[in-house]
Design a protein around this nucleic acid. Structure first.
Lengths: 186, 186
DNA sequence: TTATATTGTTTCGAGTCGATACTAATTTAT
DNA sequence: ATAAATTAGTATCGACTCGAAACAATATAA
């Protein structure tokens, strides 16, 4: 049976292509937008070349190239990591943060025009469940919010929260960012 | 407000990236798979470089390049068009048709594993409505099935069906393919 | 019949992307 | 403590993407 005879796949293909083709705004490429968005949301354990590699599903070399392009444009800054001399802490520059206000993906809210609140929530919930199923099936990482992770703990002693996996204290801000190590509570 | 704070957009971005990164199978690129799928479904008025241009949302030059790459791989054949000496009729070769049995997009059915029939249909319906809203909002073409188009007519005189826009007789097969000229009945 | 529009190709330059090979820092095993 | 394995990241290569711009040929309209 042909892929395009399955309505869901047909929709998915079309949607993915639409996202891709609309993501050429402001002189940036689709991946570059993806990277900018990721960096705006990732916590300090995740905003590294390897975090991006896992998120984008690409090879290290490819990510390294894309980061160089963004660095040349002044949208991204590389800082040394406190603990590990190999690691690089990739951060959005002020210009990078400003660029995100022109994110072409924002236009995709327009598709919800005829939707009531309920339909909207249903679509989000189902899509979220679908994506979760997809990622667990192929062992992809979820990059969920730190505070919803199975390693997330309230800590009395060191800072407000604590990561049981990385053994690190977490600030209020940390807890709202997304993390490479995120695992579903189950 | 940041795009990634809107759950739907966040899901969409992730899904689109996932589709993109999984679409590197069998030595083909994502666009090349898109083109193969399109050609397998498009009717004779639509399987041209310009049809693809409209479908992919790219420029003519880009499409021309991609087609050349697919032609070199022997997956696609170019034929002259009967009526118009400028036009090119792009068709899947036998090898191209065979390639589609390895479509990496098929793996995306796996995300529906925990879904009941009802959830599945709801997701498809909402996604379809969303996509329609999106395309009409930005005047994108829908590439719907010929027989569901506002120009589609049953014809007593010439062949089983008739296209009121192109003034052409349509076979049973034609009527099930997708068309560039598709417009919603409304 | 002369504009004008449409269909498609070519060339250019920046960037994507996987593969491969490489360096340096860190961890693990001994 | 040190050798081996692992991990983080970079550099280079070749095929391809992609928009922009310039171009040719055919078709349509004034």
């Amino acid at each position: 049976m042909h892929v395009m005879d399955m309505p869901l796949l047909s929709l998915l293909e079309r949607l993915a292509r639409l996202v891709h083709s609309e993501s050429h705004a402001a002189g940036l490429k689709p991946v570059q937008w993806d990277i900018l968005r990721f960096l705006a949301q990732a916590n300090r354990f995740s905003r590294t070349p390897s975090g991006l590699t896992a998120y984008l599903g690409q090879t290290k070399g490819t990510v390294s190239q894309s980061l160089k392009a963004l660095e040349d444009k002044g949208l991204v800054e590389k800082h040394p990591q406190p603990g590990d001399k190999r690691g690089v802490d990739v951060r959005l520059s002020t210009a990078g943060r400003a660029m995100l206000t022109q994110d072409p993906l924002a236009a995709f809210m327009g598709g919800l025009d005829g939707f009531g609140l309920e339909d909207r929530q249903t679509l989000e919930a189902l899509l979220s469940r679908y994506l979760t199923g997809l990622l667990t099936a192929r062992q992809g990482r979820m990059f969920g919010e730190c505070r919803q992770c199975r390693f997330f703990q309230a800590s009395a002693s060191q800072g407000p929260y604590f990561c049981g996996l990385l053994k690190q204290a977490l600030s209020e801000e940390d807890s709202r960012d997304r993390c490479v190590e995120f695992e579903l509570i189950c």
